[in-house]
Design a protein around this nucleic acid. Structure first.
Lengths: 151, 151
DNA sequence: GTTAATGCAAAACTTTTGCAAATTG
DNA sequence: CAATTTGCAAAAGTTTTGCATTAAC
């Protein structure tokens, strides 16, 4: 099962590169592998630090450039910004969802509410908008932080 | 009517400053006035450029510091980020709402859907989250851009 | 062998901060 | 007059870019 999944995102990436007339490189493979292995929200900086531990010769710019590529291939999406840096998450085999974010500890919880989804389409329709996507973030304090009385 | 409104946000600002033990200054007044006169979404840089045209002696840092203050006083809120810079909008006498944003021309349309609002509270409750706010942005192509075929 | 991609360092951004001078209450 | 706020310049961040070198097709 694990292998199937691994094969899939990589295959999709290589196909996308080929379609765009771009080349597959060692660095691009290493980056996409590490990103999908982590299986969580990452900033470019976190990803870079993880990569450096395992593969000495990787540049920050390559990480940025590859994340942009992956976004273009719809394998990765920008979730939002946290403390001025962009947060990315895998979107391949990871269907759309929204987020609860804890103002206190920064924890991110994913959720999907079908009603919200369909109301959004209705709103877009009403304004004669061709909806291409959306982003919903609910801010608040999570259960653990409430318990700890951290406000 | 116009005068009433003008008096209100300024009064609220001064009261908030006093409450926090902070001082009213010429610069803070100029900035809040200009922000509310514009009555639209602004980046710190746009606001600064507008201010500079009218009042030569204003520093960029003061604009940033005052925007932060105004946010703390709930007179202004952060709407999101556009091209790496923060977008602010007036929130005094400007109740909560969400946004449709055109990927093509950048136009921002405000909307409010009560159903979405209440479902969000339900979602927060389900995850035992104490919701303090939320942000919903629907991306897409607006009617005008569709017509112009700008895709 | 062409052409594209990399790593590095430097640049370009936005936002924050330290500090002497000015302004406020 | 004591304490806060300002403007400036410099720092601190993140992200992008220019360019010689390396790697892919």
């Amino acid at each position: 099962m694990q292998m199937k999944q691994v094969k899939d995102y990589k295959q999709a990436f290589h196909e996308c590169l080929k379609r765009m007339g771009l080349r597959s490189t060692v660095q691009r493979d290493v980056i996409v592998d590490e990103f999908f292995a982590q299986d969580r929200h990452l900033t470019p900086e976190e990803l870079y630090r993880i990569l450096r531990r395992k593969h000495r010769r990787i540049g920050f710019s390559t990480v940025y450039r590859t994340l942009k590529l992956l976004t273009g291939c719809s394998l990765v999406r920008e979730v939002g910004t946290s403390n001025g840096t962009t947060l990315f998450e895998a979107s391949f085999n990871h269907p759309h969802h929204d987020h609860l974010i804890c103002d206190c500890c920064g924890k991110l919880i994913e959720f999907l509410d079908q009603e919200i989804e369909s109301i959004q389409e209705r709103v877009a329709l009403k304004h004669q908008f061709h909806m291409t996507g959306h982003r919903l973030i609910i801010q608040g304090i999570c259960r653990e932080c409430i318990k700890k009385g951290k406000s």
